[in-house]
């Protein structure tokens, strides 16, 4: 917490009429998505939402499958809240918030069934591709989940599968093709500040919020993952309204992701 009590009260009391940066309650800040920013990674993306900035990188390795799904590859999302991104972040093992972010982004990707995990099987029961999506926060100005979710799927869409040498090692200079991706899940997070629904909250707004609700939507407008956070309760109507906003906003962002990926050169 870096916000003064007086500032917090100011934001809370005025939120229904005007936000600090002049946006309407449902309005996103400007979003930029870049791809191919880390040459060493199999896929990567940088996402900026206003002053929030994250980098997502995909690395692939060969590993053993889980016993209950011997014919399926493995996808893991992990995030790091590096101390460079905010005075609120401390170095050390992942804290609650970063675990929650990883798991919410992970569920969006997993539950949308976007990656065809059966195609990531090399030898049933013994060898599968393990796809690691690592997200690092470069600057924290709120709405980290949406930025991370956009970054993760963009990095996956641009990721290239390395060639396997005859001795079983990987050749990360030559590729056999893209990952089998079918769907673009997009998380949209809105919060409740003094009973007003606010989408794409800044860090200050997040600190003033009572409850937060993330809704991940897929192309056919269905929801594939949801997560309520924050200490306060929400009414049924508030949740339905936030889910509607997510349907609307995710469409614009999905188009932006597609446009970016289309322009991406391998």
């Amino acid at each position: 917490m870096t916000l003064l009590y007086q500032n917090m009260q100011y934001i809370r009391n005025n939120i229904a009429k005007n936000r600090e940066d002049g946006r309407t309650s449902e309005q996103f800040r400007d979003i930029t998505i870049e791809t191919g920013i880390i040459g060493r990674a199999e896929g990567s993306a940088r996402v900026k939402i206003g002053d929030t900035e994250i980098i997502a990188g995909v690395k692939m390795e060969i590993g053993t499958p889980f016993p209950d799904s011997p014919g399926e590859g493995i996808i893991m999302v992990n995030s790091e809240f590096s101390a460079l991104a905010s005075p609120d972040f401390e170095n050390g093992p992942p804290r609650e918030d970063s675990i929650e972010l990883s798991r919410v982004v992970d569920r969006g990707i997993r539950e949308s069934k976007t990656v065809d995990v059966e195609k990531l099987c090399i030898e049933k029961g013994s060898k599968v591709w393990m796809v690691f999506v690592d997200i690092t926060i470069v600057n924290h100005d709120g709405n980290l989940i949406d930025a991370a979710g956009i970054g993760a799927i963009t990095a996956l869409l641009t990721a290239q599968i390395p060639t396997i040498n005859e001795d079983g090692t990987l050749n990360r200079e030559e590729f056999v093709g893209s990952l089998p991706i079918k769907e673009i899940p997009v998380p949209i997070t809105s919060g409740l500040i003094n009973n007003t629904i606010i989408t794409d909250m800044t860090k200050d707004e997040t600190e003033c919020s009572d409850a937060i609700f993330t809704v991940t939507t897929i192309e056919n407008e269905n929801y594939c993952a949801m997560q309520k956070a924050g200490p306060s309760e929400m009414t049924e109507k508030q949740m339905l309204d936030i889910a509607n906003i997510a349907q609307k906003e995710s469409k614009k962002i999905r188009s932006a992701i597609k446009a970016t990926v289309k322009k991406h050169k391998i």
Partner: peptide
């Protein structure tokens, strides 16, 4: 919450249409 039926936890994974989500909330109540 017992008194006002407001929601204090909600998580979802899988697939819900808008209508299904609405129905699910009233079923939960």
């Amino acid at each position: 919450i017992s008194t006002n039926k407001n929601i204090t936890l909600l998580q979802m994974d899988g697939d819900f249409s808008k209508e299904e989500f609405k129905t699910a909330l009233s079923m939960a109540k």
